[in-house]
């Protein structure tokens, strides 16, 4: 009797799980189909040129999303590089030199950082980072690396660089905490093995800790990049909101998520609205593509680690 009832409850549970999963699938399907339906006019009007078009001019009914795509990718990439280098370094410091007294404080501060809403990062960016970039950071880069197109042109403060830096700072707590957890999971015997061979702490990290945690770190980095792609408020506040493509990181740009929030409410014509929906669709596709590529990369690296 008891056995039967247990069996029944299992079936009920499995059924419930299955229906939740179905709802989820349905939900995703609805989102995608609504997006496609709403952006249909734009898709049929512009076709592929929506992705390659560099002009976004509602007045002339010209909608090309390339500047937003460009701004999204470049700013996220800057953020990624910053977060990986600084975040990775901080995580190493915090795990490997954990006898230092400031570690507890740093951990606490990082937890606080992670809870700060993005609009606050945006404000900080606008009032602290942007003026600093305009008065000190960018003029310095221009003076030293100005011959590289990336660091040339008029200095605004706001722009792709500012957006990228803000994104990087926003990604830091996540990257640090994930990388720390990963590095804490590196077995002590392995670390002792390296130390017993005469490795310094740094050599140990390079030889054992990082290789052991690299798949996880790669995953964490991708996770943060995915988050950066969709980040809206903070980016809107510092990117300059100018739908242009410039080789200089000092120049203002715009991002997919940002143009959506700034223009959606006022979009008056059908084509305008439809194009904004297509921007949403492009953002979704970029995120999904990116997610798939990162899954594949993580899979390949872990596979290679298994073979090599």
């Amino acid at each position: 009797m008891n056995k039967f009832r247990k069996h029944d409850s299992d079936r009920l549970f499995a059924g419930a799980l299955l229906s939740f999963a179905l709802i989820l699938v349905l939900f995703i399907f609805v989102i995608i189909s609504v997006l496609i339906e709403r952006s249909w006019k734009s898709i049929t009007t512009f076709g592929f040129s929506f992705l390659t078009g560099q002009t976004w001019n509602p007045l002339r009914h010209m909608y090309g999303s390339l500047p937003f795509l460009y701004g999204t990718l470049i700013s996220s990439l800057i953020g990624l590089v910053l977060a990986t280098v600084v975040g990775g370094g901080t995580a190493i410091l915090l795990t490997q030199f954990n006898h230092l007294r400031f570690v507890k404080l740093a951990t606490f501060l990082l937890d606080v950082l992670a809870t700060i809403p993005s609009v606050v990062y945006g404000l900080w960016g606008l009032f602290v980072l942007v003026p600093w970039l305009r008065n000190t950071g960018e003029p310095f880069l221009k003076a030293t690396l100005g011959f590289v197109p990336l660091f040339s042109g008029q200095v605004w403060g706001v722009g792709l660089l500012a957006a990228g830096l803000i994104l990087g700072i926003m990604m830091l707590p996540t990257i640090i905490s994930v990388v720390r957890k990963l590095m804490d999971q590196v077995p002590q015997e392995l670390q002792d093995g390296a130390i017993a061979l005469g490795a310094t702490r740094t050599e140990k990290v390079r030889m054992v800790v990082l290789p052991y945690a690299r798949v996880g770190i790669l995953g964490a980095v991708f996770l943060s990049f995915g988050r950066a792609l969709g980040e809206t408020i903070a980016v809107t506040m510092v990117i300059g909101n100018s739908p242009t493509i410039s080789s200089s990181l000092f120049q203002p740009g715009d991002s997919l998520a940002s143009v959506l929030v700034t223009q959606f409410l006022e979009a008056s014509t059908h084509l305008y609205l439809s194009s904004l929906y297509e921007i949403g669709l492009v953002l979704l596709i970029v995120a999904v593509l990116f997610h798939s590529v990162s899954k594949f990369l993580v899979w390949r690296v872990s596979e290679r680690a298994r073979i090599a």
């Binding site: 015997e189 005469g198 052991y212």
Partner: peptide
């Protein structure tokens, strides 16, 4: 201590080869 460990080698209880190396 780095020098010491090069003079005094150690093998541990459970085998601990570096898993990511050949």
């Amino acid at each position: 201590p780095i020098i010491v460990r090069r003079k005094v080698g150690m093998v541990f209880q459970a085998p601990n080869p570096f898993p990511t190396k050949t």
